[in-house]
Design a binder for these strands. Structure first.
Lengths: 176, 176
DNA sequence: CACGGAGTTCAGAAATTTCTGAAACTTCTA
DNA sequence: TAGAAGTTTCAGAAATTTCTGAACTCCGTG
């Protein structure tokens, strides 16, 4: 299924298996379930650990390691996004910053820099927003999502809250 | 640079080139600039068109086609997200739905279905939210992003707006 | 209606990514 | 300290993806 989450096919398969499995699995159980090599499982689990997507557990008197996915899907999503940001967005941002440090040579360079400044600004706005929003607990996040189209009306109200500061709002409608 | 946007390296390079280029380019100019084969450029441009990421233009008395990226980065982002959703999220959702139609056989199947229901719910919540938010014009979207951490406080206020309906809010603070 | 420039197609080559088996390593136990 | 059970590593094999050159289509022109 969806193997375009920044991880490869096998890793995805293993994670899907752990996700739907009612109890933690050990490496050999995964080998058997998916028909892939032991070493592949080992490397893939290592990868999942690097992504902090799996939980490790042990049974008393058993040396094997058992793996499972977190219970909370929201938590999984948060981890996934956090890791992707770390691996993809952050490096992109710093490359962009480096380029923007240099002085542009000639007209087309200037244009290119302007464009990259725009791109940088966009990404930075998004990550700033994300860094804020990720602080919210899942409950509130769900409320925010559920708000949906009403968000627009609310925005108008917030224009006032923000611009007028702490003064009382007169109504919930807003302008435009 | 960032070639993990669901498109391949060359396509990314070409798009980056178009993005920073002050004027539309024709296929041969891209060949020359990037040192890749004509056929590769042709196929990559085709791909970019399929993603609706490029604009096509012509010069009078010239049969060649000229390509460029939209001026507005926000618009580029919107298109990118929309297309990825169409290609990745939507198919995932329908596969999930299909699976959830079937009756689970046995205990572990039941568990698996519960898990998939959770996943389905999560994705649906996110896409519903997205479908709403994408209606907003860029101006408002920027405001929403800029709101950042204040969003939390606002959420508490919105609890009231939503639950009390259209009545006037007493202050912008909220509780907690 | 043959020519040439522009664009496209596609089979195989090249590059990249992923997977495997065999050997090495680690711990625990007897 | 030998060995059993589990895990890890890694060089090369296999699979997949991407790229290319050569042939082809599609116009408009002289």
């Amino acid at each position: 299924m969806g193997s375009r989450w920044g991880i490869n096919r096998t890793v995805g398969q293993i994670y899907a298996l752990l996700y739907v499995s009612p109890k933690p699995l050990c490496a050999d159980e995964i080998v058997e379930a998916l028909g892939i090599s032991r070493s592949n499982v080992s490397m893939s689990l290592r990868e999942l650990q690097a992504w902090r997507l799996v939980l490790l557990s042990h049974k008393p008197g058993d040396r094997r390691e058992f793996f499972s996915a977190p219970d909370d899907v929201w938590q999984i999503l948060r981890t996934l996004i956090e890791e992707r940001k770390k691996r993809e967005i952050d490096p992109t941002l710093s490359v962009l910053r480096e380029i923007l440090m240099q002085d542009p040579q000639g007209e087309s360079e200037r244009f290119a820099q302007r464009r990259m400044t725009e791109m940088h600004g966009l990404i930075e706005q998004l990550t700033t927003w994300y860094d804020d929003v990720k602080q919210l607990d899942t409950q509130r996040l769900a409320t925010l999502l559920g708000l949906g189209s009403r968000i627009s009306r609310l925005l108008d109200a917030s224009d006032k809250i923000v611009s007028v500061g702490r003064r009382k709002t007169k109504d919930g409608k807003g302008r435009v």
